[in-house]
Amino acid sequence: MKFALIVIDLAARVLPGHRQSWGEAMRAEVRAIESAPDALAFAGGCLWAALCERITVMKAIVFTGRLLVGLVTALYGAMFLVMMVNGLTGQSAQPVMPWVVVWVATMGLSHLAAAAGLVFWRPKLFWSAVALAVLPGLVLTVFGLATQASQFLRFAWPFLPLALLAGAALFLAWLERRPRRPIAA
């Protein structure tokens, strides 16, 4: 009986916060069962139910999606940092402009931060990092084109992967919030 109580306490702890009253319900039910093997089997089932309540299929899909997109974003950010290091150590054949180094560093760091914000889903961190990645490119493109130098167009291409990243984050957030279909639909 003691083992059944340990298992049901674990089940109550595994349940999400908004289901705590159901954890109490399960606990009270196990305490009311007189047969120890029955109580243990019942508690084991409750633990399974609690795990299923915690890890739904949709949550698993959203988590996997965020992990994959976050990994690609982190690799993309790391690529910028590698570019920056190569440029700074003189492996690049062309002279490096200081503002290009700042832009590349900002892109690399902001993408790494966006990847962390996406995987652990901290919306404020994610959107701040995306904004930080967008702003320098936007400023360079707008003011650069204002000087009629078409070379500044190359600072516009990262907007496409950033738009894809933002779209993926919005889609995954929508999937997470999507209401469950009612039983009597």
Binding site: M26, A32, I33, A41, G44, G45, C46, A49
Partner: peptide, 26 residues
């Protein structure tokens, strides 16, 4: 009660409680 329903329906608690939760939610 949950245990009585489990015995009556033959459903394990791992199946019964998610159903009860969904029925209550709806």
């Amino acid at each position: 009660y949950g245990y009585d329903l489990s015995k009556e329906t033959g459903l394990k608690s791992g199946t019964l409680y998610p159903l009860l939760i969904r029925l209550a939610d709806d």
